[in-house]
Amino acid sequence: MAIYSFWIFDKHCNCIFDREWTLISNSASGTINSKQTEETAKLLYGMIYSLRSVTQKLSRDDTANDVRSISIGKYRIHTYCTASGLWFVLLSDYKQASYAHVLQYIHSHIYVKYVTHNILSPYDFAANENETRGQGFRKIGNRNFISSLEAFLAPMIAQ
């Protein structure tokens, strides 16, 4: 089972965190918040956004219809969108059917604990108007957040 990358997007269309594992089954490899992944982040955001708009148009009975996963070629994109506009996105292979519980745990126990409840960390990563609409560049640099995320995901990558 392989996890390829993990991303967090906020409601201002910015990518506020990305973690890419470049070698399969090697949890120590890869990059965190690297500049080179900015292009990919924008493409990923754009694609999820368009597919979400498609699915919302096709929903009936006014019940929420959210994208859960997108299978592409040899990998799969899992998304978890919160009502506050945060998107947690995980790219993995086909072995595990759903990562919804994983993403939910990351949101409720890791993000909320280390970012939202941390008074000294911004809750809104766009400092001013110019950093909204995809123009932002601030990322989560919180060491506690990163280390607990690594600790949580590492066992899943190494399998």
Binding site: A2, Y4, L44, V54
Partner: peptide
């Protein structure tokens, strides 16, 4: 809807993760 699907289909081809590209 159809043109959004067509476009996303095209974007998807550029999103292959690095680990998969290398392998």
């Amino acid at each position: 809807l159809a043109s959004i699907l067509h476009g996303s289909f095209a974007i998807a081809t550029q999103l292959t993760p690095k680990a998969l590209q290398l392998s």
